[in-house]
Nucleic acid binder design. Structure first.
Lengths: 255, 255
DNA sequence: CCGCAATGGAGGTCAGACCACAAGTATACA
DNA sequence: TGTATACTTGTGGTCTGACCTCCATTGCGG
């Protein structure tokens, strides 16, 4: 750890760019949503070539700190923080992450998040949650619509937890899980049951009962996990390390 | 998966590169530690300019999927997965992450991790933990040495948990916290007490008592947090949303 | 008043030359 | 003979400057 070794007026230009922007952000000169100068101009300012500047920007963009819009400009990320979505899925392929592991992580984080939300949630959050629950019941016949409100519901809880880091972590995992889910929701049944669970979670959060919220959320997620056939495989000595073979008939239910 | 819309001979070259490499990794052609072809050659193969190829590689490198070594070559990351350290610290500055939030995330994750480790840890892990505990007691008079074994101890627990995703998450947070810690450990006292706690955690893990391990880990971390003056500030109606002002005098003790 | 084409600003890509670094190999000197 | 220095080669890093593509705005024509 400790990259230290920058500042040598010669160090990798790309790091020069990164550090420059970092300082601009850290001292508040650059705020989320701000636009940075056009590449050509900025490059001239920093006394480096446009190519190098682009490398640096690319680096920051990859980490989700900056957002580049072709034909418009480059901006400091403004939305909710999100640790490179691509990162997790690639790392997954790279280190053989399994679906059940992602789900396990999600269960642990989100249960705890629900507890925090119950403890710290504000009226605005309660209102938003209430609304999403209503929307869910309203779209019980439209899986894809249902999924949207489902996602929103969970995202609101993240925000209500008051811990943006945990929220970002969850967001990363969720988005990685999203693709798989989208394909299964279509055929899902029992959306009503799912909606009921969400309503109960909402109620316990509103009533500020952390332990109950945590328990309900955990139950809810475990059920969703089972519905998607992503349980942790039973212990077995023979580990078929072939990275394929899963993908049973998922009868998914939304989470 | 499914960025859908690739293959259009025009889609962003950088994504073309990313997807190409992604597939190479996913189908096992590229394994961790492997070296990819020289830029010039690879660029020719992919029918794109070297510049574009570099952009893509830079992207992957930023996410920690690839590691570039000047004058040597570009390789697929091999070490333990780690979600961009820079990412978290930059995001921190960007979205005003607070130290107590990082610590909260750490406590939640690591407590749970300890429980999982107690549940799934294998003999090899127990042995490694035991050794680190011994080393900790042995280096009680050398804070910097102590810190090393402290870190290792926690890392082993991560591995023992059997969930690489959670391990990677923790790793990210820990490394972000590391810098602050390193500065404070020097002046720390009570390393003996800290070592005792680690030993108890080790014992409960070895005895496969998940709940106890979780409880001990949580206590341990809360204590460390308190020692570093990173508790969550008391509720206050007036939220000074100015993203500055933190950074008190930390009197840390190792975690 | 509306729709569509022209225009300018900004990012995206390209090509090829040249620089910097790391490692191996050959050469020169003690 | 042994070791140290210099050269060669392979690979990433940076620079130029021209050209392409996208998008938003502007303004003309219907």
């Amino acid at each position: 750890m400790a990259r230290t070794k920058q500042d040598d007026p010669n160090t990798h230009r790309t790091m020069r760019v990164v550090n420059h922007i970092r300082s601009l952000i850290e001292n508040g000169t650059l705020q989320p949503g701000d636009k940075i100068p056009p590449e050509r101009e900025f490059a001239r300012t920093l006394k480096i070539s446009r190519a190098s500047l682009r490398t640096g920007i690319g680096y920051l963009a990859a980490m989700g700190v900056m957002k580049v819009r072709h034909g418009v400009g480059t901006f400091v990320a403004d939305g909710p923080p999100e640790f490179g979505k691509a990162s997790l899925s690639l790392m997954g392929a790279l280190h053989g992450f399994q679906s059940w592991q992602m789900f396990e992580a999600r269960i642990i984080l989100e249960s705890q998040l629900a507890a925090l939300a119950a403890d710290r949630g504000k009226e605005e959050h309660h209102a938003a949650l209430s609304e999403e629950v209503a929307e869910m019941f309203a779209s019980i016949d439209s899986p894809s619509d249902y999924l949207i409100h489902d996602l929103l519901f969970h995202r609101i809880i993240s925000q209500a937890s008051g811990n943006p880091i945990l929220a970002a972590l969850i967001e990363t995992i969720t988005s990685a899980l999203y693709d798989k889910r989208r394909k299964t929701v279509e055929r899902s049944t029992d959306l009503r049951e799912s909606a009921e669970m969400h309503r109960e979670i909402y109620r316990s959060i509103r009533a500020r009962r952390p332990l109950e919220a945590r328990k309900l959320m955990e139950e809810h997620l475990r059920m969703a996990q089972a519905a998607q056939g992503m349980e942790r495989p039973a212990e077995r000595k023979t580990r078929a390390d072939g990275p394929k073979s899963r993908r049973g008939r998922l009868t998914g239910v939304a989470s």
